[in-house]
Each structure stands twice: as C-alpha cells, then as structure tokens.
C-alpha cells in the first residue's frame, strides 16, 4: 500500500489566464488576479509546452493561500486532444489534489503542531449542514469554519426525503449521536437541480429524485403561478424548496425527540447567493413549524431511535 503520493510525480503548471476559455466562465477570473501576472508570459504558449513547464509554486498565491493549479480544459477541448495528452491531463488534475493536500497539512502542522492530534481525538460539531453538491458552495469555506466544526451532507438540490436512507442516516447520526445544536438546510439561487426539475424532459435516473422538487412546486402552485418573471419564479422555488426540506427535517423522530428532551437542535433554512457571496436567512419560525407539523407528524412518544 503506497503511503502519501510522492510530490511532483508530474510537473504542475499554473492556469494560464485566458488561454483555455471554459464554456461557462472560470472561477476567480484571472484577468483581475494580480498573482497571475507572472504567468501572463505563458499566455500564448502552446498547451503542451505549458503542460511540461516547471511551476514556480511561490507564485501560485491566490486569495492569500497557495494553490497548485493546472491548466483547465473544457470537456470539448479535452476530447480534441490526442490520447497521450488526455492521459497527462487526467494525471495532473488528479495529482494536484494530493499536492494541495500535502501543502495544506504541512501548513496546519507548522501553525499548530497539535492540530491533527486534536482532530483525531474525535468530533463534536455544533452544526449539521444539508446543502447542494454544487461545487461553488463549499460549506466550511463560506461560513468561515474549520475542520471538526460542521457535519456535512450534500446532494443534488439539498433534498431531504423521508424514504432516503442516506440523508436519514446523516440526520439520525448528527442529532442522536453528535447532538448538534443547529441543522441548516442551505439551497442556492441558480440551482441546476431545481432548474432541471422544472424542465419538461425525461432525465432518466434523476426523474424520481427531481420529482420531489416538482412536488414542492405543486404544494406552492398558487403562489408560484402568480410570479410572471421566470427568473423570480425560479428564485422563489429555490427558497420554497429549502422551506419544504426544513419541514422534512422537522418531521423526523430524531429532531422532534431531541428537541422535546433538550431544546435543540433548531432547524434553519438559508439560501446562498453567488451575486454577493452572502447567505440569506429565510427566517423559518422553527417553533411555529414544529407545532404545526406535530399536529400530524408527531413522533415524540415511544422513542425507538427511528427516523
């Protein structure tokens, strides 16, 4: 069994600004990222030459931290490359993670020698986060939390379905065993899952999963149908989806019983906006929702560790 991958198995290079334009834009555009200036010279270098270039890791400083980055290619661009280049690209985009991880681990250890020893002792997070799989919303980064502080489940369109053993196991473990104080369901505007659900199209395997979002629409049909602007309607559906998933969390026996016993967890519904990077609190009235839900879904009696 190999231990940690040896460093620099293959050369890494910085992403060359503007050379390979990704179809839907790059994250953190290089045009305004001055740390990249040193690489502007590489702008017109052919792909293969860049791939073989030796990186100057000390220049790869973005947002105050160092990243080992590779040139990004879209799937279309990749398909037009010869097999040897495709293989190289796959190797590099893979190795980059290990490079970054190793550097991160070294930095943490240098800053706090006990960091990993303390972490390996166990976890006692205050929060359970149920968010979307979308790569642009890394929960810990956008909330400023470090390792050990937030238990996280992420799936397509942050859904909480009562027959889904996957998410139910997460809620169960977080509430009954880790005793989290807050459960946060966080959606985001521009959610591809919500959009896909509202598209009149057969999505195969995704149909049953996305059906839950169509059901949210049906529950709020009267309100949504009055919104004429398509974009606003879609934004509202994202919010209502979060509200309904919060209700689904509150319907679980784990949350109801824990709250009856100790007064926690509290369930929150939030939406993340890419436009300003801020979280919007939908201000769900937890106690009010709990009360209305328990009229029908009360599971506080005869606890049997169920969902």
């Amino acid at each position: 069994m190999p231990c940690v991958r040896p460093r620099a198995a293959l050369p890494h290079v910085a992403r060359a600004p503007g050379v390979f334009v990704r179809p839907r834009g790059t994250v953190f555009p290089s045009s305004s990222a001055s740390p990249f200036l040193g690489f502007l010279a590489a702008r017109h270098t052919p792909f293969q030459q860049q791939l073989n270039a030796t990186p100057r890791l000390d220049q790869l400083r973005i947002l105050g931290v160092r990243y080992c980055s590779t040139i990004r290619m879209s799937s279309q661009e990749l398909e037009s490359q010869p097999p040897s280049q495709v293989k190289k690209y796959l190797q590099q985009s893979h190795d980059r993670i290990f490079e970054n991880n190793k550097r991160w681990a070294e930095e943490q250890k240098a800053k706090h020698p006990e960091f990993f020893t303390n972490l390996s002792a166990g976890q006692s997070p205050d929060y359970l986060w149920i968010g979307c799989s979308d790569s642009r919303i890394p929960a810990e980064a956008i909330t400023g939390l470090g390792p050990g502080e937030m238990f996280i489940h992420r799936n397509i369109a942050n859904l909480v379905c009562n027959t889904d053993l996957n998410v139910m196991s997460v809620v169960n473990y977080a509430v009954r065993h880790l005793h989290v104080k807050h459960v946060i369901v966080c959606g985001h505007y521009g959610c591809g899952g919500v959009k896909a659900a509202m598209t009149p199209k057969d999505m195969g395997l995704l149909n049953p999963w996305l059906r839950n979002i169509r059901d949210v629409y049906r529950l709020h049909e009267a309100e949504l149908d009055t919104i004429e602007d398509e974009e606003k309607k879609y934004d509202r559906l994202v919010e209502l989806n979060v509200v309904e998933q919060c209700r689904n969390v509150i319907k679980t026996a784990a949350v109801q019983q824990s709250y009856a016993r100790g007064g926690f967890p509290v369930v929150h519904g939030w939406v993340f906006g890419f436009k300003d990077g801020l979280l919007k609190d939908l201000e769900i009235d937890f106690e009010g929702q709990l009360k209305s839900i328990q009229k029908i879904y009360n599971l506080t009696a005869d606890a049997s560790e169920g969902s």
Partner: peptide, 19 residues
C-alpha cells in the same frame, strides 16, 4: 459527512472545483 474533513479546505481547492 464527518466534520473533520471539509474537502475544499483539506484539498486546498477553490469554490467551483469539487462537486
């Protein structure tokens, strides 16, 4: 789901890189 392994942090990645 363990809170001690925030993937974007431990992999030193930026938002938009890991699904």
């Amino acid at each position: 789901a363990d809170s001690r392994i925030p993937e974007t942090t431990v992999c030193h990645c930026k938002p938009g890189e890991l699904f």
